[in-house]
């Protein structure tokens, strides 16, 4: 399997503050990798560098075959990335419209993503008429509708209640099993990281470096019983140990 994302010795500073110090890791094609670490360790900045929204100060960052039609990004501030002048349907359809897809194909794709996510949002409603959780679902739907090959997710479940959080994790795994995108997910929730990721990259507090990369080989899709399994506890224990070390607790 080829490498899809590689990050080598990446450096970044904001003014005087050094965010990373030589961060390196790789994400293989079709793999789900979680970036986990204390607040302010630049997890989101790393996604922004990878998606070329932010310039890095040194090192190498590669996303194989980077092109906007193949990469999707669910922002942490999902609310500010939705278009409030478009209703739910037109928000989901937006990236496809940008690609000049015809209306029939767009309709099929929107239906497809709705059934994968199992969401029944009223298509005529506007984002500001939805709850935070629904808006986050909408942001997800919009990101997946292009069938991305690379998928960046920043704190994907932060606005969801626990029940919907678990549901979305389940749907996301189902999607990944079918479409095999390469996923890099930023989270500050250890349960989410271990539940979803095949490997967890644990970062230290800034200036961040990679403390450990914890393998998590259990097969997908991982249902709820996984959260009560020995593998889960083992992996979580190792991630936690690395986190403690990196955060200096």
């Amino acid at each position: 399997m080829g490498i899809t994302i590689s990050v080598r010795d990446v450096k970044k500073r904001f003014g005087q503050k050094e965010v990373f110090q030589d961060v390196s890791f790789r994400v293989r094609k079709g793999e789900i990798v979680a970036l986990f670490g204390p607040n302010g360790c630049g997890k989101s900045t790393l996604l922004n560098i990878l998606s070329r929204l932010v310039e890095k100060d040194g090192g190498k960052c590669d996303v194989d075959g980077f092109s906007s039609s193949r990469v999707s990004y669910v922002f942490q501030n999902y609310r500010d990335s939705l278009l409030p002048w478009r209703n739910v349907y037109d928000n989901v359809a937006f990236p496809l419209e940008l690609q000049d897809m015809n209306a029939d194909d767009i309709r099929k794709r929107v239906q497809e993503v709705e059934s994968i996510l199992g969401v029944r949002l009223d298509r005529r409603k506007y984002p500001y008429e939805l709850s935070g959780g629904q808006q986050q679902m909408l942001a997800f739907a919009r990101a997946l509708v292009t069938r991305p090959q690379v998928f960046f997710i920043d704190e994907p479940f932060s606005a969801l209640d626990y029940e919907n959080n678990l549901l979305l994790r389940k749907r996301l795994q189902e999607y990944c099993v079918i479409h095999r995108p390469t996923v890099l997910v930023v989270t500050h929730d250890i349960e989410e990281a271990v539940h979803l990721a095949g490997r967890i990259v644990v970062l230290s507090k800034p200036p961040a470096r990679v403390v450990d990369v914890v393998e998590n080989p259990s097969a997908y899709p991982r249902d709820l019983s996984f959260l009560d399994s020995k593998q889960y506890r083992d992996v979580k224990g190792r991630v936690f140990a690395a986190f403690q070390k990196g955060a200096g607790l």
Binding site: L53, S67, S68, V71, Y73, F94, P95, L98
Partner: peptide, 17 residues
């Protein structure tokens, strides 16, 4: 707000789009 512009750029929108 820049966030929506950024999101659109990331989806491959041209300047005109």
């Amino acid at each position: 707000k820049k966030s929506r512009t950024l999101a659109a750029r990331l989806m491959g929108a041209t300047k005109l789009q």
